[in-house]
Amino acid sequence: MQTIYLIRHAQATGQGPDAALTPQGEVQAAILADLLHAFPVDAVVSSPYLRAMQTIRPLAQRAGLSVTTDDRLQERVLSTLDLPNWRDLLKRSFEEPDWSAEGGESGRTAMNRGVSVLRDILRTEGQRHIAVVTHGNLMTLMLQAFDSSFGYDRWERLANPDVYRLLFDQGQFQRLDRLEMTQSP
């Protein structure tokens, strides 16, 4: 069996690639490290965005692991335009997976990009329990690939951070569940 801990980053100061964690996000990262340190994580893969790296760094340091970045874990670009109605368009993108806003990535394209990371990880020898850090929109699409109940409504309910455990047997998906975060380290 292989386990992937799919993680949404902790609370951040913004949405850009260089947005750092807030002070609360730093506390959340420490709580996350406590939670995941109880599991035998043997590899860490992260979006290259600063907030994702800062989210997983406490666990990686504690476990003596290096963090591998993968550009495919970057957040999905909904559009290159500043859209005041972006939530409506995000909802539409979950309902119509092949639709994309101007300059944006369709839900299906983003899902396939994210899932390709997981497939590559599952083929890596010696990695049995892997922490993968990404962003809310992409994470929801990745989870949707394994459970069709994930969509806009589930995206709205995601926490910062949030953790889902996906179990695979010989590369075949078995089940997923959400790990509950505690409120203190």
Rank of each mutant, 00 (worst) to 15 (best):
L32M: 08
G104D: 10
Y5K: 13
Q144F: 01
R76N: 05
S116I: 07
S46A: 13
P58Q: 00
T140A: 11
I4N: 11
L83G: 08
P23T: 02
P58L: 00
N137I: 01
Y5E: 11
R57N: 12
S116D: 15
V117W: 02
R57C: 04
L65N: 12
Q170A: 14
R51N: 02
L166H: 04
G64M: 04
M139C: 14
T69A: 10
H37R: 15
T140I: 04
Q54L: 03
F39Y: 15
A10T: 00
Q2P: 10
T80W: 00
M139T: 13
L122W: 06
R128K: 15
F94T: 00
R123S: 14
Q24A: 15
R123Q: 15
S79H: 05
D147M: 04
L59A: 03
D88P: 01
A10D: 14
V41D: 08
V115M: 07
Q2M: 06
L59N: 03
L50E: 14
N112T: 11
A12I: 02
R119G: 12
N85F: 02
K91M: 09
M181V: 05
A10M: 06
W99T: 08
A159V: 06
G14S: 04
V67F: 02
L81T: 05
R123K: 15
R157F: 00
E105N: 10
M139N: 08
G126S: 13
P161V: 01
T22G: 12
F150H: 12
Q127N: 14
G16C: 07
V77T: 09
S149G: 12
L78N: 02
L143P: 09
Q54C: 07
R178G: 05
L35T: 09
V117C: 12
L167W: 07
D162V: 01
M181N: 11
E105I: 00
H129S: 12
L78A: 12
L6M: 08
Y164Q: 09
S149P: 07
Q127T: 06
T80K: 13
F39C: 07
D34T: 05
D88W: 01
I4K: 11
L6Q: 10
S116M: 12
A38C: 06
V44E: 06
P40L: 02
A33H: 05
V27T: 14
